[in-house]
Simulated assay, not measured.
Amino acid sequence: MRLFVFGASGGLGARLLDQALGSGHRVTAVARTPESIPGHARLTILSGNVLEPHGWRRVLAGHDAVLSCLGSADRRPTTVYSQGMTGIIAAMRDSGVRRLTCVTSASLSLPPTAPLSRRLLIGGVVRPLYRHLYTDMTKMEDIVTTSDLDWTIVRPPKLTDGELTREYRTAANQHLPRPRTLSRADLAHYMLNHLDDQTSWRSTIEISR
């Protein structure tokens, strides 16, 4: 497949690139720090910003799928998720690319059965601390789910730098019982290996070890 990846220089993006190239895919990667990405014969690296589509949108045509690994740990107000996804979807429509996979967070929605300790941690500490990030993530999910694309939103729990295990649980359009942690390598594995899985299209997937 020909894949178009945003956030390729981040922790998740690096693992996604490594697995995609190792599986024989051709990849176009957009990154603000392209010098941090090792070269490869099947990899095209674009220096760019998701918020500035003029730098990459004309290259999008001919790709089979877009994968967004965008992320931020900034506590300040941000539009990188919502504004970035608005530009991505507009470019995909113009280019005829329909398959989209993006990442948000399992903490956006907690089940009523979540343990009290988790509800206190997420609701009392994490969400208030990163309220701007979660607000923009929620906006991005709304933008994606109201689009006419073949989209998948993946909601992982806390991510780690652990090894690739290929052992994880998923739940489509419902909460996953007892979420723990997940390695970025395993998240990348799911994203890559379910691009053709039509049961995951137009679905929000929770994932965890």
Rank of each mutant, 00 (worst) to 15 (best):
I45G: 00
G96T: 10
R32N: 05
A41H: 13
V97P: 05
W56S: 06
P53D: 05
L46K: 01
L51Q: 13
Q19R: 09
R26S: 13
L16Q: 05
S9Y: 05
S72M: 07
V50R: 02
I45T: 08
L67V: 15
G24A: 01
A73W: 10
G55T: 05
A29Q: 11
L100M: 10
G55V: 01
S47Q: 11
R42I: 06
D74H: 14
G39Y: 04
L12N: 05
H54Q: 14
L70N: 06
S47D: 08
M92L: 06
G7W: 00
L100K: 01
G48P: 02
G7L: 01
L17T: 04
G7C: 01
A61R: 11
R75T: 15
D64L: 14
R57L: 05
P34S: 01
M85E: 12
G48L: 10
S68A: 13
T28H: 05
A31F: 00
M85W: 11
G13A: 08
A29G: 13
C102S: 12
A106G: 11
I37K: 06
Q83D: 13
D74A: 14
S36N: 09
V27E: 00
S107A: 14
C102D: 03
V30N: 04
S105G: 13
C69G: 02
V27P: 00
G10E: 06
V27D: 00
R15K: 11
T33M: 07
A90N: 13
G55M: 00
E52N: 10
P77K: 15
I45V: 15
Q83H: 14
R32Y: 04
P38A: 12
V59A: 06
A14W: 01
S9R: 08
S9N: 15
Q83E: 15
S95F: 05
S9A: 12
L43N: 00
G71D: 09
I89C: 01
T33Q: 13
G62E: 08
A31Q: 03
S47Y: 04
M92G: 04
L51W: 06
S107M: 00
V80G: 03
C102V: 07
A31T: 03
V27W: 01
A106E: 03
G62A: 10
H25G: 01
G7Y: 00
L12F: 11
L12G: 02
A31D: 08
H63V: 07
E35V: 08
D64N: 15
L67N: 02
L46G: 07
V50M: 08
R58F: 04
G48H: 03
H54P: 02
G87D: 09
C69V: 06
A73M: 09
T44S: 08
Y81R: 02
